[in-house]
């Protein structure tokens, strides 16, 4: 619904939303690409992806001071910026009538590309291109952005989960140690006790272990 109501032109002439039968996307290694992202890891992941994809002229900007001046100096064909970046508004200035602008730059929002835009915004990235650049040449870059941004988000989730698991394991180890000492039992028995209690109380082992650790601190 949102695509149709947003882009009435689509509803009028019933053009397809997806671009399957359009011209094949063309890879263009000569394109100058600038990545604006304060997150150095994500920027590196995206830059690597673009280089692997054959784009040789990729520059990263991680420092936001004088952003516009840096962009004008680099004179890119494509600008990729993450949506968590407040400096996105700075780029809005590029579209203004101004003598300072060397080349007019237009945002990659053609009214026939609603699906591509939604995918990009959903992944947390936005793209700007120089005016007149054919969108078939941009499509592979945008697709790559979406997949790399999504991959980064998954990586972060995984990292968080790993860190949580690690800290849970530490807590369980501490709880085991406390039980072994207090009840004079072996490690396997201590773990079995934690597990049994967790099952009886319908809790996670880590939660029971945390309770043991907290109680031991209180009773010190």
């Amino acid at each position: 619904m949102t695509i149709r109501e947003t882009y009435p032109a689509l509803t009028r002439d019933h053009r397809p939303l997806f671009t399957g039968h359009r011209a094949t996307p063309q890879m263009d290694p000569a394109l100058k690409i600038v990545i604006v992202d304060e997150n150095p890891v994500r920027a590196a992941i995206l830059a690597d992806g673009l280089r692997e994809g054959g784009y040789a002229r990729v520059t990263r900007i991680e420092e936001m001071t004088n952003l516009l001046a840096r962009i004008y100096t680099l004179d890119p064909d494509v600008i990729l910026i993450d949506l968590e970046n407040p400096s996105r508004d700075v780029l809005a200035q590029m579209f203004q009538v101004s003598r300072a602008v060397k080349r007019p730059v237009a945002m990659f929002v053609d009214q026939s590309d609603a699906a591509a835009i939604e995918a990009a915004v959903d992944a947390g990235v936005s793209a700007y291109i120089v005016d007149g650049l054919k969108k078939e040449r941009i499509k592979p870059i945008l697709d790559l952005c979406v997949s790399r941004f999504n991959a980064f988000a998954r990586l972060q989730d995984e990292l968080e989960r790993t860190q949580n698991a690690l800290s849970e394991r530490k807590t369980i180890d501490r709880a085991k140690g406390i039980l072994m000492k207090a009840r004079n039992i072996g490690e396997a028995d201590a773990y079995a006790l934690l597990r049994k209690t967790a099952m009886n109380e319908n809790k996670k082992i880590a939660e029971v272990a945390q309770a043991v650790v907290t109680a031991a601190e209180l009773l010190k």
């Binding site: 619904m1 109501e5 947003t6 809005a92 936005s126």
Partner: peptide, 15 residues
């Protein structure tokens, strides 16, 4: 949100 561009775009595309 962190930018007016984001607010505008997310409103425009129906998010």
């Amino acid at each position: 949100e962190v930018s007016w561009s984001n607010v505008r775009d997310k409103l425009n595309i129906g998010l």
